[in-house]
Design a protein around this nucleic acid. Structure first.
Lengths: 351, 351
DNA sequence: CTGAAAGCGCTTACAG
DNA sequence: CTGAAAGCGCTTACAG
């Protein structure tokens, strides 16, 4: 553990310089230049002496001083709807890893999908002088993004995309299609969708991917069979209740754009005496760690959450380097499990 | 939105001073002194002019410059096992809220409960010059904590406690007792415990609270009825399998020190053809948002996760202010649901 | 190859 | 009540 920290007396460049009887600027040059440049920066002998002493004394440069001088903080701001959403928590793990690899540290804040908080948290981040922003809670009708662009704040979207801005997301349209392919192939012809929040591209794209694919097969989905809802368990439960009340005949399969909504729906189905996987197929989205371990294992479209986080960092890095970047959509895959594995039964089909 | 940010040209103290024809130090005094001191710092008239202009130009002080000068960063480091553990994610929301209220920003990092990573992340935090640390992943045998203390790094523990260090936790012993009270009162006499990781005080305290209370009632718990396990769903499943294999007669109730482990256990029980709530009672811990919404709603000891996070920040603030602090244990409550609500059946009792 | 100086934006004794 | 100076720890042209 190095010593230049909260507790102990910090070792500075000047300390090193004094100790070696050379000038601080020389020490800086040696320590700062990335190995390559170091050669021209100082004699090999001096460089070694400096490096050895720095290591021995546990020197670590003061990031505040460095930032003040270089005008770059190596700080990244990350804004998510809520970290207690497992999906965002995993993406953040990807971000943390990616950022550490590039020498950046990250702040995360929860906006709760509330526009006032989104703005406030963004301001807080900018007041901290982050070099750039990773925005995981973009709304499709967001005005904030346009402002940020106008002000030339470097940012990328993650998790949810908005056309015209750089983003790292799952290919959610494809994900919806995969779910449709699967349910159609199992013989289902009467399905419903728990569609999520209409302001989120994840919800809109997954729903559109599913519905369009379904129609391309010649299937039909009525208006009341697409229910917009919150992403959490309680939201899924309510949506499922609505579907059970409004749709007659009752659908034989449910596609929820989120695993947690799917779990809530499973609860509602059980309350109605229905057995998931037999009386009603259910497919979720994201393949969170829970899905496979549920009492009735849940089929789910697996999105590469960790990779999305990592990719967002790479993308932001490119933006910071002044490169032009295009949105990236990572491919999902389908995991079929007990909740939707079997073909529709003759009984259900005849209903 | 203020303008002093990543994108735009930043407004500095000097800008304000030039604009008003006064000295930067005067501006600093006015802006910095907390209303009280402001009175003595400058004339009311000047103060107003400065404040108005600062507001108009969207001045926000450069935190890096301030830190360099004051030697305080107003940065807090938070280390958790993993943010994808919902429990820690919620605690972090409490931290974020509490920290914002005190004017602090927070870094979070995942250590995955790996000692090497714990040390590395701690180093990274200290290299960033955080003012203090909130440690959510302490191991009972931790040597790092002693080092930090020696080096006078301000820190508090959260979530998991270690005797001799300040901490904000749930009263986990009480939580275990509540679960024991409940199951005993429902007539159970043969129980098993999914105990969690033995290096975590949460696991140890909850298990000890349960077992000791059980024995105080005159109950017995055999060695193989206490199974240490990971905290996640897969860990709970494995532990339940072990219990079902090793315990004869089969227990009629299961106490899992974590909701996710409980959910995994429910899956294992179902695989064995057992119905939770009828053939086997299950009680979890933390009352995460999922518990109430599961197909079979899960009884759970509710821990005040948000409050634990908030409390940790308050505690750390006191430490930073040089106050002496004592560990704080917040009280849990029990939420009884379908998974354990009914009294043990005569059939099971006779086994 | 190395030194000396200037300056990033702020705060804080010290004068007056 | 306000100004002027020093300095936090660093980097970076500029000399030599």
């Amino acid at each position: 553990m190095n010593d230049s920290t909260a507790g102990g007396r910090t070792v500075t460049l000047k300390d090193l310089a004094n100790e070696l009887g050379i000038h601080p600027s020389t020490v800086s040059r040696i320590l700062h230049s990335g190995t390559e440049v170091a050669r021209g920066a100082a004699s090999v002998a001096t460089a070694k002496r400096v490096r050895d002493l720095a290591h021995k004394l546990g020197y670590s440069p003061d990031p505040q001083a460095t930032s003040l001088r270089t005008r770059r903080t190596h700080l990244l701001g990350v804004i998510v709807p809520r970290l207690s959403d497992l999906v965002l928590a995993i993406m953040y793990e990807g971000i943390e890893e990616g950022a550490a690899g590039l020498g950046y540290s990250t702040f995360v804040m929860n906006s709760r999908d509330n526009p006032v908080e989104q703005r406030r948290k963004t301001d807080t981040m900018l007041a901290r002088r982050v070099d750039g922003l990773i925005i995981g809670d973009a709304h499709l009708d967001n005005v904030l993004l346009q402002e940020l662009r106008t002000r030339k704040v470097p940012f990328v979207l993650m998790n949810r995309r908005v056309p015209g801005h750089p983003s790292a997301t799952c290919d959610d349209v494809l994900g919806g299609q995969l779910a449709a392919d699967h349910l159609w192939s199992r013989g289902h012809r009467n399905v419903a969708v728990i569609a999520g929040e209409p302001y989120a591209s994840t919800a809109v794209d997954r729903t559109a991917g599913f519905v369009d694919q379904w129609k391309s097969f010649g299937g039909a989905i009525s208006q009341q069979a697409v229910v917009w809802s919150r992403f959490d368990t309680a939201g899924g439960r309510e949506a499922a209740e609505n579907i059970l009340n409004a749709c007659n005949p009752r659908p034989t399969a449910l596609f929820a754009v989120n695993d947690f909504a799917a779990i809530g729906a499973m609860g509602a189905l059980r309350s109605h005496g229905l057995t998931v996987g037999r009386d009603m197929a259910v497919v979720g989205f994201n393949d969170t760690s829970l899905a496979a371990e549920l009492p009735i294992p849940l089929s789910s479209v697996r999105s590469p959450m960790l990779d999305i986080g990592r990719t967002a960092v790479q993308l932001l890095k490119q933006v910071l380097d002044g490169e032009r970047v295009e949105p990236i959509r990572l491919k999902p895959t389908l995991c079929v499990r007990e909740s939707s594995a079997r073909a529709i039964s003759a009984t259900l089909l005849r209903q």
